[in-house]
Design a protein around this nucleic acid. Structure first.
Length: 336
DNA sequence: ACAAGCGACGC
DNA sequence: CCAGCTTCGCTTGT
C-alpha cells in the first residue's frame, strides 16, 4: 500500500519569501520574519505569505531521511511531501502500516519538534486524499474494502490533478462527485478530456490509479522568473533585470553538477498569458555565458513576436543531464 | 522520435 | 493578480 506524508512547517522561525499585493498594502515584505508579518496582518484574510525556502530545506532533508529509513521505497514530490510504498514490509496489513505511520510521526516530532499529516491507502491518489483530510497533524487510513464508498460522496475537486478547468468540464457532464465519476460514460469523458486523463480519472474514482512510487526522481528543469519594475518588451531591459537569475541558474547547475540542452525565454504578458521561445543546443552545456547569450537572443525573438508588454520575465533551462543516474532495479531490468 | 509552444495543475 | 517554480500532457511540425 501507499502512504503519503506531509510535514508541518516551521513557519514561525522562517522569513517571508513572497507576499501578495494585499500583504504589501499592510506593510509586509519579503525578508521579514514570519512572526513580525503575522503581527502586522493580525489575522487578515486573503493575505498570503510564504516561508523562505532555504530556511526549510535542511529541516526537510532530515525529515525525508527519517521517513526513508522506514519505507520500502520513497518518492519525494515536494519540499514537505513524500510518498512511500509499504507493500513489501506490511504485506497488505493495514494495522502494520498504521504502526509504521505512527512511528514516523513520533520520529519527526522527537527529532525536529514538528507535526505531520499522514494518509494511507491502496494507491497514491487515495493516500494523498487521506493525508489532505488528515491535516493538520492527523492520520487517516482508507482500507481497500471501503475505499470506493469512502470516495463516492466527495466532490471531484478532491482528486489530485482535478483543478478548476476540469471541474467545469465535469460539471457540464453532470458529474459532481467522485461517485458520479465512477459511473460516468467513458466515451463521453474521453471526448472532452482525452484518453489518458480520462483513464486516470476513471481509475482514480475507484481509488485505483496505477502510479508507482518511483525512486530517485530528480529535477528535470530549473527556472527563474522576476516581476519587472515596469512593463516592457525590450530585451535589454528584460536581461538586465534577469542578471541575478542567470547567476542563480548557473549556481543551481553547478551545485547539482548538471548541464542543460534546452533553454527558454519566458514572458508573462500584461494579460497574464505566457509566451516562450526556446532552443535546443547541439550538446549539453552549463557555463554562465551560454545561459546569458542564448537567453539574450531568445528575448530579442520573443520581444519582437509579442503584441503586449512583459509583466514578468524568466529563463528556464531544461533537458538536464549530468548527475549520476540512479535508476531503480525494475527500470534496469525493463531495459534488458 | 524529437522539437517547440501552450495549457492545466499543484506546492 | 497569490509569487515563483515545477511537472506533465496535448498539438503541431519536422
Amino acid at each position: 500500500m501507499v502512504v503519503c506524508v506531509f510535514s508541518g512547517r516551521t513557519e514561525d522561525s522562517g522569513v517571508v519569501s513572497t507576499a501578495n499585493y494585499r500583504a504589501r498594502e499592510l506593510g509586509v515584505h519579503s525578508g521579514m520574519p514570519i512572526a513580525t508579518a503575522k503581527k502586522r496582518l493580525h489575522g487578515a484574510d486573503s493575505v498570503i505569505i510564504r516561508m523562505e525556502h532555504e530556511k526549510y530545506e535542511a529541516v526537510s532533508e532530515r525529515i525525508m531521511q527519517l521517513v526513508r529509513e522506514r519505507a520500502d521505497a520513497m518518492e519525494q514530490t515536494g519540499i514537505d511531501e513524500t510518498f512511500i510504498d509499504l507493500s513489501v514490509s506490511c504485506r497488505g496489513d493495514y494495522r502494520a502500516a498504521l504502526r509504521t505511520a505512527e512511528d514516523i510521526k513520533e520520529a519527526i516530532r522527537h527529532e525536529e519538534g514538528l507535526t505531520c499529516s499522514i494518509g494511507i491507502g491502496r494507491s497514491k491518489v487515495v493516500a494523498k486524499l487521506c493525508s489532505d483530510m488528515a491535516k493538520p497533524g492527523g492520520l487517516k487510513v482508507a482500507e481497500p474494502e471501503s475505499t470506493e464508498a469512502f470516495l463516492a460522496p466527495l466532490p471531484v475537486s478532491r482528486l489530485y490533478g482535478v483543478g478548476p478547468k476540469t471541474v467545469a468540464v465535469l460539471d457540464g457532464l453532470g458529474i459532481k462527485t467522485i461517485g458520479d465519476l465512477a459511473s460516468a460514460n467513458p466515451l463521453e469523458l474521453e471526448e472532452r478530456l482525452g484518453k489518458k486523463f480520462s483513464a486516470y480519472l476513471m481509475a482514480a474514482s475507484k481509488g485505483l490509479d496505477d502510479e508507482p512510487v518511483r525512486e530517485g526522481v530528480g529535477p528535470t528543469q530549473f527556472s527563474r522568473i522576476v516581476t519587472l519594475k515596469r512593463d516592457t518588451r525590450d530585451s535589454d531591459e528584460a536581461m538586465a533585470q534577469l542578471k541575478n537569475g542567470v547567476g542563480y541558474l548557473h549556481g543551481r547547475l553547478a551545485a547539482t553538477n548538471m548541464s542543460f540542452k534546452t533553454i527558454s525565454a519566458v514572458g508573462i504578458l500584461t494579460d497574464l498569458s505566457i509566451r516562450t521561445r526556446s532552443r535546443t543546443l547541439e550538446s549539453p552545456v552549463n557555463d554562465i555565458s551560454s545561459i546569458d547569450q542564448n537567453a539574450r537572443e531568445l528575448f530579442v525573438e520573443l520581444g519582437n513576436a509579442v503584441d503586449k508588454d512583459f509583466l514578468r520575465v524568466g529563463i528556464r533551462v531544461s533537458g538536464l543531464v549530468g548527475r549520476k543516474e540512479q535508476q531503480s532495479l525494475s527500470e534496469f531490468v525493463q531495459q534488458r
